[in-house]
Design a binder for these strands. Structure first.
Length: 336
RNA sequence: GCCGAGAUAGCUCAAUUGGUAGAGUAUUGCACUGAAAAUGCAGUGGUUCCCAGUUCAAGUCUGGGUCUCGGCA
């Protein structure tokens, strides 16, 4: 990954996209930026969109969200699944709204696909998931295995089959779903488009071992802050345990513990391991953002980085009013 | 102290009559467009506790040593 010491020049009306693995300090940097620039934070995290999941998803606190406008946090109950395609619509709306106010949208979050839905402006096949159909195909998958389902896809939609992993049941099911609903190939219903706004993509990184230590310590803190009670609260709401929200890191392991399947220490250990795996997964996702510039947070204070970004944000943009207002305010106080 | 069991990948453990040491997990990477904190694929990693012996060939058999666990004193 290319790393730099200073951000490149900006374009007016840019969206600042802030990516990186969990626990690297994205939220912290976004808040530091908010102290220096008129930003509004747009969530790009597939779990922080759900209510009642605050501690375990490391959601910004209520106080933090009161101090800076935040979008797309707590927008769904855990049993109302948010899909990427829905997310994309909401995120575009939030970004447009922020730009219209002359403020800077900061898209920040750890879900690579959500970020890519904006950065690569993905075109999604307009086929709403059909739970009944998926359940039927799941049954077929169990009976005949991935190979059997893949065979079927290869006959119906050979073009999509050619680029689909024959072992990945979930991807095969989605491809079949699209073909069975539309009669068209998934390959032809999707694509990337240039982004709608100028983007400045900033990646935060950190040596792996150090990152692991940070997220391990963070999980211990979460436990001390009541992650177990929060998980119990979700169980008491009687949600279907297969919901994506309840598969979230930490919650998933603690649910197993609360059901008596594993010990508490096993659950914690498992949650930590899974978080490490997730970090790996996030990196492979974010490496697909070729325009990103990466900053190593172990070499550099987040606050300094925020200061540098704020100073170099473009003149001639709608930020001018804010910048000059701030300068004249400083001038007044100096003169007094 | 005596008796028994054991020591193999970072961890937990497999390995037929002696015949190129494997799996899960960890770790690293990759794929993945309406489930993405999901799903799938792959790579790295070994002085088989140590020493000696038997044998064409030892994780495996023999002897000695070290350490661990359990039982008995």
């Amino acid at each position: 990954m290319p790393q730099t010491d200073s951000p490149p020049p900006y374009l007016a009306g840019s969206v600042l996209v802030l990516v990186g693995p969990t626990g690297v300090g994205k939220t912290q940097l976004a808040l530091a930026l908010a102290r220096r620039m008129p930003v509004e934070i747009v969530n790009a995290d597939s779990r922080q969109v759900y209510r009642y999941m605050d501690i375990g998803t490391a959601k910004p606190t209520v106080a933090q969200r009161a101090a800076v406008p935040h979008h797309l946090f707590d927008i769904r109950d855990p049993d109302r699944v948010l899909t990427v395609a829905e997310y994309q619509v909401l995120a575009v709306r939030a970004i447009e709204g922020t730009l219209a106010k002359g403020r800077v949208p900061v898209l920040t979050g750890g879900t690579p696909l959500y970020v890519r839905s904006i950065v690569h402006n993905l075109r999604f096949p307009r086929v709403v998931p059909d739970p009944a159909l998926r359940m039927r195909l799941e049954g077929d998958l169990k009976r005949q295995g991935a190979e059997g389902l893949f065979q079927r896809l290869a006959e119906l939609d050979p073009q999509t089959a050619a680029t689909t992993d024959p072992h990945n049941g979930r991807r095969i099911i989605r491809a079949l779903e699209i073909f069975l609903k539309t009669g068209k190939s998934k390959r032809h219903l999707e694509g990337t488009r240039p982004p709608v706004w100028p983007l400045y993509i900033l990646g935060l990184t950190c040596p792996r071992l150090q990152l692991h230590q940070r997220v391990d310590a963070r999980l211990d803190t979460m436990m001390a802050e009541g992650l177990c009670a929060e998980t119990r609260g979700l169980l008491e709401r009687k949600y279907d345990l297969t919901l994506p929200a309840l598969q979230a890191l930490g919650y998933r392991s603690l649910i197993q513990h609360l059901q008596g399947k594993i010990s508490l220490s096993e659950a914690i250990q498992q949650a930590k391991r899974r978080t490490h795996r997730y970090i790996r997964h996030q990196y492979t996702g974010f490496r697909r953002l070729e325009e990103a510039v990466w900053f190593d947070v172990s070499c550099r204070a987040l606050d300094d980085l925020a200061a540098q970004i704020a100073v170099s944000w473009p003149a001639g943009s709608s930020l001018d009013a804010w910048e000059t207002g701030r300068a004249s305010a400083a001038g007044r106080s100096n003169g007094a």
